[in-house]
């Protein structure tokens, strides 16, 4: 199952990383080279293996339903790239481009 240039485009889209056109072919080659080594695993018979989900058994430890949470030394407005009135701002989604605006 060789990774194609189109696969790289698709995966980059899923991972939200812009990839330069000129890098697509070489990335496909690199991923193929790495995945080629992974194909070793096909030799292993795992038909009867019961995969353990997560390490350390005994199940998940739960917490009681009360606070306070682990605190923040400074509010989000001090580290977020852009904020207004406590909101974190991002460019509007293309799907909401047509949304009406309230008076500022």
């Amino acid at each position: 199952m060789a990774v194609t240039r189109e696969d790289v485009v698709k995966v980059a889209k899923l991972a939200n990383i812009a990839i330069d056109e000129t890098r697509l072919d070489s990335l496909a080659l690199e991923l193929n080279a790495i995945l080629g080594h992974m194909d070793e695993l096909r030799k292993v018979d795992t038909a009867r293996v019961q995969t353990a989900e997560g390490l350390g058994s005994g199940g998940q430890r739960l917490r009681a339903d009360y606070g306070p949470p682990d605190g923040l030394a400074s509010a989000p407005a001090t580290f977020a790239p852009e904020t207004r009135d406590g909101f974190v701002l991002v460019p509007r989604l293309a799907t909401h481009e047509g949304s009406p605006e309230r008076a500022p």
Binding site: F87, V88, L89, P91, L93, H96, P100
Partner: peptide, 15 residues
């Protein structure tokens, strides 16, 4: 919550 109609051209996020 994403608020799309509060500010001009941007989406406001409240977590």
């Amino acid at each position: 919550k994403s608020v799309h109609d509060r500010y001009n051209g941007v989406t406001a996020i409240d977590l």
